[in-house]
Design a protein around this nucleic acid. Sequence first.
DNA 1: GCCCATTTGTTCGTATGTATA
DNA 2: TTATACATACGAACAAATGGG
Lengths: 156, 156
Amino acid sequence: MTESIGRPAYQQVADDLRRRIAEAELPVGSAIPSTTKLAKAYGVSITVVRAAVAQLRADGLVVGQPGKGVFVRATPNTVAERAASIEDLMAQVAELRAELRRAGSAWPDEVAAEVAALRRDVGLIRTHLVDLYAQLDRPLPTTLLAVPGAEGRVSE
Amino acid sequence: MTESIGRPAYQQVADDLRRRIAEAELPVGSAIPSTTKLAKAYGVSITVVRAAVAQLRADGLVVGQPGKGVFVRATPNTVAERAASIEDLMAQVAELRAELRRAGSAWPDEVAAEVAALRRDVGLIRTHLVDLYAQLDRPLPTTLLAVPGAEGRVSE
DNA sequence: GCCCATTTGTTCGTATGTATA
DNA sequence: TTATACATACGAACAAATGGG
């Protein structure tokens, strides 16, 4: 109606709600307007609002409680902030590896095996994260690429 | 018949389609039956079928082409691979912590602190991956949801 | 405790637009 | 051109949960 662009109405509503959540106009923990209120505010039908909210719910941004409302669960831009935690994790792994090398043979063999398996899985996760960033059409954080953790040679 | 359980009809249809895709009854690359055929086959309305297919599409299992059909894009196992690695990583961390507790004083304190920090960051990584899946219009792999001790609480 | 308005979640039917064959 | 099929959008109805009176 108001928009004549090709993008579907329910996605436009979902995008606007994502923006309002990101800009803290709809803070985390608060309830978004009800379905009927959103329909009147955006000038669309109930079906369009339901489709938009269903998309946000599928994304995990909001969670609905029957009889109460739909509440904001997280913000879309927390992803970029949490990307730093990856860097921290890699640093922790590197530190742990250094500690392991320093301790040398004082460590039980089975524990060394556990740590090795842990390192392997972290590398796997890193690979998957790279793939996910690629699918997001978002540049991979340089800190994630610069991590040399994938190639740790412990005397084994 | 299938209404004996409280699970919604569209989720039951989605579950059955996932099973048929996983068992290669609907191979990757092939087209699933049309909306009307599925509605008649399952004895439900068009709306239910469309909701089920929309869920599969959000999970990245199928992709729809207007005028042609809905084609299988991947198997649930493939999609669940990334989530499974998370599960393994968390299991490894749990095992490592158990080993740490068993070894007792044999472990240096600084290493114990590193492992604790590592465990904290693994939880952060999990939430990070959840958000990445959200931005990919894929809500959550079911295996990731089924992770034991999956508290949706981010310390916030 | 009971009734009632509100809200979400689900389901139904139908109509229109667009793409494919 | 006609037919099929998906995507979107409209309206309507019911159940369940919540909260106020």
